[in-house]
Design a protein around this nucleic acid. Structure first.
Lengths: 202, 202
DNA sequence: TAGATTGTTAATCGATTAACAATC
DNA sequence: TAGATTGTTAATCGATTAACAATC
């Protein structure tokens, strides 16, 4: 929950910096998202003393600190498994690169796709996964395959040595405790919508 | 936050029903997700008295109730705006149809795409949006367009009369208070991953 | 020094959990 | 009736907010 807020602060600060502002108080920052200023101060103070009493926070310093805390101040190397519609969409998704996530390899099982190239990256067969992860120093695997093969792909990613998996397949996969797993579940978003529509119309 | 849990219960019950089970207690249900049984009972009791003291909950009845509460017991008619990679991925995403979300129209701005057909559905120009929403009795708009045009698409959807918008564009859009807006923000998922990787390696 | 704003401690609020009377 | 389990009230816990001493 904290990550969500840090991320919001970080983006806001990037915008403020672009606008040429130098410092901002917790009150001003809080006002932008209907948050409490004490909450903002507490969130930030948790990671260190970034503010200056009587003045506020130096926007550019704080932004840099938050990016460091969020881990988006460095490049993360990613392998994309599955180059169907969703895989392609993710590949072209600009937010990926903007946050320092660099797709260093694409893997697909389909012989028709293997060998084709996407923006200079050749699509590799699944068998090449371990070699690619090692050679490209890849830390993160993105799973964009059908639900049926999601677990087996996750297992192969773990075996190949990734430290984190972002799973877009509508299936719950199991990974060892030392591998970070993040599920993106579209069904929940849909159910959230239909719940509110159904409740609203009662 | 409650919707998330209701959704989890609902899926679990569907599975249990498939397995041929008839009733389940709040304790058993809670055990499956490391939840507290009091929490399960409270969540369910909020919407009515669905349990039988001394017995537990009738699986099939409770599942039906939850689906009704979540609004997934009926068909929701959806217009998909944007038929690029992400749009196609969503169009083919099976979870959509499974939850009763029926894509009744596809709209795209690109003249090269307009008129083409996808699974029997003809891609319409943006100008046709109001007519399509009315004719097809569409309640939900899914925005799968570039960030730059997300707001203008949302405005058109609202003007056309949809009651809810699911926004996949990496841009914050504004809609009137009576239109339900759900943003799907991939950046947050990414930041969540990199945060934990960065923290873990300190 | 006076005014402003932080970091942090204390108070409040809401959500989770425990306990139990009601009842199958 | 005895055992089990619900729905709900009371207790606990954690997160949010208010208040304020520290300090720029």
């Amino acid at each position: 929950m904290t990550v969500r807020r840090l991320s919001v602060y970080s983006r806001c600060l990037a915008q403020l910096e672009e606008d040429g502002m130098k410092t901002i108080s917790s009150h001003e920052l809080a006002a932008r998202f209907h948050l409490n200023s004490a909450q903002v101060r507490k969130d930030l103070a948790y990671f260190g003393e970034f503010g200056i009493r009587g003045i506020g926070y130096d926007i550019s310093t704080l932004r840099a600190e938050l990016q460091r805390i969020l881990g988006v101040d460095r490049e993360w190397r990613v392998v994309l498994v599955g180059f169907g519609n969703l895989g392609s969409a993710l590949f072209h998704y600009r937010g990926f690169a903007r946050q320092g996530f660099r797709i260093a390899a694409i893997v697909d099982d389909d012989p028709a796709k293997v060998g084709r190239s996407a923006s200079g990256l050749t699509i590799l067969p699944l068998a090449e996964l371990p070699r690619a992860v090692k050679a490209q120093e890849i830390q993160i695997g993105v799973v964009a395959v059908p639900a049926e093969v999601a677990q087996s792909v996750a297992d192969r990613l773990v075996a190949a040595g990734v430290r984190a998996i972002l799973n877009f397949a509508p299936a719950r996969v199991k990974v060892p405790r030392d591998v970070r797993l993040q599920n993106v579940d579209l069904s929940i978003e849909l159910e959230n919508l239909s719940f509110h529509l159904a409740q609203g119309s009662r």
